[in-house]
Amino acid sequence: MGLTKSFGDHRVLDGVDLAIRDGEITYIIGTSGTGKSVLVKHAVGLLRPDSGRVLIEGTDVSDLPERAWAPIRRRYVLVFQHSTLFDSMTLRENVALPLRKHRGLSRAEARERAMDYLRLVRMEDRADRMPAEVGPSERKRVAISRALTLDPHCAILDEPTTGLDVIASATVDDLIRRLSRELGRTVVVVSHDLRSIFGVADRIVFLYKGRVWLDGPPDVFRVSDDPVVRQFIQGDPNGPIV
């Protein structure tokens, strides 16, 4: 609510008001540098707002100390833009890490359970490879499966299809749909992949100039005559967005 965040003199978020609804797939869209990733990092306590409040299930978490975030991060998981698998661990060890750290399983138990989650994203046959030995789409899928190990209430995916080919993007889109429709999770996706946005989203939030510019279902965006929204959707180099 009224979230503001600046880095040096650059104000990235300038009074963002946004409420995420349970069970929906919400896409947060906008041009590069509009603060989409900055916004979602507030939801898991990786950034603290300069002003405004972050409410999770009605509780103000804006000023929570670092150690108090662990239970929240079990329910609200963030999959980072670059997948962020740990280079020094195999894919299976990556997935096992939150099982050990959040759920307190032993190393052996966590490794065994990790295989179930790798199966969910069809990566079980490459479980013992290092992240550098698989492609970007596979890394994204493993990162998502690592997030699912916590059985989260809400999964926040930061640009999950950026840099992927069409087939790999469709695989990730399918996974997002399954998360919501089959597993009943709330999903928040940061993206500027239009094919993915209009194919998957229940609701779209368009960020521009540090604020929510337009918020609604995909149809609202399709018929919008706002020049900023039209330029973004049509990918037109000429217009108010420079």
Partner: peptide
């Protein structure tokens, strides 16, 4: 720079 440090925090490490 590849967000792995933040990912550690998210994974309660």
């Amino acid at each position: 720079v590849t967000d792995q440090v933040e990912a550690l925090k998210v994974n309660n490490t």
